[in-house]
C-alpha cells in the first residue's frame, strides 16, 4: 500500500468491524473487535464499580469515589429533570450512561475500538430510548400524551403549525440523538488519525502534527465525557416529556 501515495492515511480504517476469531467471514454471531471492546468495557465497569467499592468504605477511596461520583451524578440528574418518578427508570439510564461513557473513554486508548462511533450502536440505543419513552408516555398518560404536541400555552391560531413542528421534532429525536454521539466520536478519532498520518509522512517536521494530536486528544477527552453526559441528559429530558407531557 505504501506505493500508492506518499500520504498513507486511512483515517476510517479504525472503524472497520473485524471478526477476530473466525477469520474473514462476518456472521451475525462472529466475535468482532467491537464485541471485544464491549467486553473490555464490561470488565472495566465491573472493576470500577464492583472491585473499587468492594469494601463498602464509609469514607471512599479513589475508585469508590469515582463510582459514587458517577452514580449520584446520574441519580441527581434524573431527580432534577424528571422528578422523583423518574427514579424508577434510574437503572436503565445509568446503564446507558456508563455504557456510553466507558465506550467513549476506552475508545481514546491507542489501538482501541470505539463502539460508540458506530451509527448502528448509537442508533439502536437512541431508538430504544425513543420507543421506551413513547410507550411510557402512552402508558402513563393514555391519549393525554398527545398534549405534548398541542401547545396549549400558544395562541390558538399558531397551534396547528406548532403541532406539525412538534411532531416532526419528536420523530427526529432518535436521529439527532444517535448521530450526535456517533458523529462526535467518529470525527475526533478520524482527525487524530489524519494528523497521525501527517506525522508519519513528515519525518522531523512531525513535531507540528504531534503537537496537534496532543491538542485534539485533550479536546477529545472533554468531548467523550460531554457526549456521554449529553446523551444521558437528553434521555432524561425525553423521559420527563413522557412523564409530564403537560409542560
Amino acid at each position: 500500500m505504501e506505493k500508492q501515495s506518499a500520504f498513507n492515511i486511512h483515517p476510517m480504517d479504525q472503524f472497520i468491524i473485524d471478526p477476530i476469531l473466525t477469520g474473514d467471514s462476518l456472521e451475525w454471531y462472529s466475535f468482532t473487535n467491537q464485541a471485544l471492546w464491549m467486553l473490555i468495557s464490561l470488565v472495566s465497569i465491573s472493576f470500577v464499580f464492583i472491585y473499587g467499592s468492594r469494601k463498602h468504605q464509609l469514607v471512599p477511596g479513589r475508585l469508590q469515589s469515582i463510582a459514587e461520583l458517577m452514580y449520584f451524578f446520574i441519580r441527581d440528574m434524573i431527580i432534577d429533570i424528571a422528578g422523583q418518578e423518574g427514579l424508577r427508570y434510574f437503572p436503565y439510564i445509568f446503564t446507558l450512561f456508563i455504557l456510553i461513557l466507558f465506550g467513549n473513554v476506552l475508545g481514546l486508548l491507542p489501538y482501541s475500538f470505539t463502539y460508540t462511533s458506530h451509527i448502528a450502536v448509537t442508533g439502536f440505543l437512541a431508538l430504544s430510548v425513543f420507543i421506551a419513552v413513547t410507550i411510557i408516555g402512552f402508558v402513563k398518560n393514555g391519549i393525554g400524551f398527545l398534549s405534548l404536541f398541542w401547545i396549549s400555552s400558544a395562541p390558538l391560531a399558531l397551534r396547528p403549525i406548532l403541532l406539525i413542528i412538534e411532531v416532526i421534532s419528536y420523530f427526529v429525536r432518535p436521529v439527532s440523538h444517535s448521530i450526535r454521539l456517533a458523529g462526535n466520536m467518529m470525527a475526533g478519532h478520524a482527525v487524530i488519525k489524519v494528523f497521525a498520518g501527517f506525522a508519519g509522512a513528515l519525518g522531523l517536521g512531525a513535531i507540528a502534527p504531534i503537537f496537534a494530536i496532543t491538542a485534539v486528544y485533550g479536546l477529545e477527552m472533554l468531548v467523550v465525557v460531554i457526549q456521554a453526559y449529553v446523551f444521558t441528559i437528553l434521555t432524561c429530558v425525553y423521559l420527563n416529556d413522557a412523564l409530564h407531557p403537560g409542560h
Binding site: 468491524i17 462476518l26 456472521e27 451475525w28 454471531y29 462472529s30 466475535f31 468482532t32 467491537q34 464485541a35 464491549m38 467486553l39 468495557s41 464490561l42 465497569i45 465491573s46 464499580f49 464492583i50 467499592s53 463498602h56 463510582a67 459514587e68 452514580y71 449520584f72 434510574f90 437503572p91 436503565y92 445509568f94 446503564t95 456508563i98 455504557l99 463502539y115 458506530h118 448502528a120 450502536v121 439502536f124 440505543l125
Partner: peptide, 26 residues
C-alpha cells in the same frame, strides 16, 4: 446484525450487573 447482536448481549449483561451488583452496593 452482528453489531446489534453483540450490543444487545452487552446491554443485557451490563443491565444485570447494574441492577444486581452496582445499585444494591451503592
Amino acid at each position: 446484525p452482528n453489531q446489534i447482536f453483540w450490543l444487545v448481549v452487552f446491554c443485557v449483561v451490563l443491565f444485570a450487573i447494574v441492577k444486581f451488583f452496582i445499585i444494591p452496593r451503592m
